[in-house]
Design a protein around this nucleic acid. Structure first.
Lengths: 230, 230
DNA sequence: TGTACCCAATTGGTATACCAAAGGAGTTCA
DNA sequence: TGAACTCCTTTGGTATACCAATTGGGTACA
């Protein structure tokens, strides 16, 4: 890769999200210089930004691509339920009808794109667009963060034509509830969609763990031990 | 200041939180070199980290201390309600009784410290400690972020002995509800506490806006206009 | 053969030099 | 008098040089 003149941040991010750089892989700033055709200063900036998105992290003194962590998938989903259900309740209060129409178009657009990549992007686009209708930048940003952290595992998810159609259906049902201004139903749909995604991700990851590790992926399950008392 | 050998990040952060650097103030990387006794590389890193906490932001090509934004206080509070009420519900499920006892001690500690500074720190400590009992790093981190973004305005808040006692009372009531494993009550208490804080902050900021601006503070009210349709 | 020590290469942390672009002040012309 | 242009200063963006610390390998010794 080393795309001609994309920013180091964008190039590195794309390489991580596409799994071209494997989860858990060690990164050295000097090693990335040649890969990204840039010097260490912008590379350090990119690594720090990506660390804030959870895509890279420190490993001792150095850096690594954040491993895939089953416990993190669970925790992110809990966080997502809090953020997205709050967002949809506010969106029901605040979104204009035309905005909900546009959101429905976004959900329905899955019809034509059956390939995996656009299906992935569209799915994320829908949830971020929904969260933005809350008119709350923090909820929208939280949702973006959630999708970023789940996106590498979504590449691994089984995305059959049927599962894509089911996601599209659930999205459309959410929009219907929002148009009906039924905040309680919309919130329930959001939560159950989120849990369905989590369960599909976790079962698939557990099933494929051995194979993926064989390909060099670092798949861990971090401790959920109680934090030390103050 | 220019404390001897604290990191540029810590020194700059303290200067912003203490309002020694005023909200809205323009920062230049080279200007900070002498103030922080460091070179531009670590200073840039500090500015980027602080931007992720919402304490600095880009202003054109340069940097500034993030102005105090009434709309942001409202939005952060909405986000806080989502995060903290989810956290308290999970904490009711997951926290050991000894952990709740320790939390109560934290809340009760306000009794002795009547001065403003420790009152502030303790208040934040309590809410972060509560959120950590959810065993969810994202909820705890979200709560930390909320308190950071509100902390400069809390310096400005009227913190009479009476208001501190009221906060302490509300905190203790939360712990009682958690000990009783009454998630629904605990959640209600968290939300109403959050709204009370918001209202006190906003009324105080509105009242004092003129005076604070006279002291050079940048206090704005950013637009809440709907985002552009996709 | 195994262990311990030492040297060298690699790494991140920091300082600094150089560049291009943006901003401001001063001057000039209408 | 006002507007516009030019030049210079200042700024962030980037590349690079230097340093200290860590790590890994290779060798020597028991």
């Amino acid at each position: 890769m080393a795309t001609a003149d994309a920013t180091p941040y964008a190039t590195l991010r794309a390489a991580i999200l596409s799994l071209e750089l494997m989860p858990g892989e060690k990164l050295s700033e000097r090693g990335l210089e040649s890969m990204l055709n840039a010097s260490r200063t912008p590379i350090r900036a990119a690594l720090m930004s990506l660390a804030n998105e959870g895509l890279t992290q420190r490993a001792g003194r150095g850096w690594q691509v954040t491993p895939i962590d089953l416990a993190e998938v669970r925790a992110v989903t809990e966080y997502r339920e809090a953020v997205e259900s709050a967002a949809v309740v506010l969106a029901v209060e605040r979104a204009e009808t035309e905005e909900l129409d546009a959101l429905r178009d976004l959900a329905a657009a899955h019809r034509d794109n059956d390939d995996e990549e656009t299906g992935l992007r569209d799915g994320g686009d829908f949830h971020v667009a929904l969260a933005r209708l809350s008119r709350n930048a923090f909820l929208a940003e939280g949702m973006r963060d959630v999708l970023t952290r789940l996106s590498r595992t979504r590449w691994l998810e089984v995305r059959t034509a049927q599962s894509r159609l089911q996601a599209r259906d659930e999205h459309l049902r959410m929009v219907d509830a929002m148009v009906a201004r039924d905040a309680e139903l919309a919130s329930r749909l959001v939560v159950s969609h989120s849990r369905g995604t989590r369960d599909r991700l976790l079962t698939h990851l557990s099933d494929e763990k051995r194979r993926l590790r064989g390909r060099g992926f670092s798949i861990i399950e971090s401790s959920t031990a109680p934090p030390p008392l103050p």
